[in-house]
Simulated scan of single mutants.
Amino acid sequence: MPGYPRGVITLVLPGVYAPQDDTELLAEALRDEAPPPGAHVLDVGTGSGALALEAARQGAEVTAVDVSRLAVWTARVNARLAGLPVRIRHGNLFAPVRGRTYDLILANPPYVPAPDSGHGRRGRSRAWDGGQDGRLLLDRICRDAPALLRPGGVLLTVHSSLSDPYRTLELLRAAGLKATVIRRRWIAFGPVLRSREDWLRGRGLIPPDEDREELVVVRAERTR
């Protein structure tokens, strides 16, 4: 699978987000984090289940959530094919796990700025459209994830520099977390960005001569 060379994922159905460069970048951060066996991990917006399965391979107790029923079904099939125990729930972000806490939360949400507001997201684009500023779901994650972290718990989230990493850091620090960018990677524009390149340039999000986007991983820790 492009961008995810370890071969964990067997099935990705049309309309489900396939592992790509952002998945691999977050997987690298997960491996560096190395949660101990038995750690409670939440993968929110799991898609095909790639990151949830990576955490389960490390011995974590993993819960995965996605708003797409097709993604939930896909992740369940992949977990079964891999022989890995992952609890997979259908629901909107943290709603299915309200009241629970975790040692590690993983998030690779839709973050690509889109010409519409994003409130009516549907179809395949729901896997990547993040509203006009790309932060429709990112802001909700920054707001709600801190309360789900145990003391010493960590949030790892990946998104594009087009959706304002400084805003992510600001919100997480305001919530009392110690937040920093731990990984960066430049990648060539994919089909989605190329399809809305003129709109992004018109908004000043992409310089006239730029043909790459920067991905970042933000690590935020609840220190107390």
Rank of each mutant, 00 (worst) to 15 (best):
P85H: 01
W73L: 14
L51H: 09
L70H: 04
I105L: 11
P113H: 02
A29L: 12
G83N: 00
R57Q: 14
A75M: 04
R76T: 01
R98K: 11
E28G: 05
T74S: 09
L84W: 10
P109K: 07
L26F: 08
N108F: 02
P35A: 12
V77Y: 04
N92A: 05
S48E: 06
R80K: 13
A34H: 03
P96D: 04
A27P: 08
L106I: 08
G99C: 07
N92E: 13
T101S: 15
L51F: 08
T101E: 13
R89E: 10
H40D: 15
L30T: 14
V112S: 04
N108D: 04
E33H: 05
A114R: 04
A82L: 01
R89P: 00
G99S: 07
L53F: 05
E28L: 07
G91P: 15
A34Y: 02
E33S: 02
R87Q: 11
D103F: 03
G59M: 07
V67D: 03
A27M: 06
L104W: 12
P110L: 14
G45Q: 12
V67H: 02
H40F: 12
L42S: 13
P113D: 03
V44E: 04
L104D: 13
L84G: 08
P109A: 07
L53R: 01
P96R: 00
P36V: 15
G59V: 07
H90F: 13
V112I: 15
G47V: 11
Y102S: 01
L53T: 02
G59Q: 05
T63P: 06
S68I: 10
Q58C: 03
L26C: 08
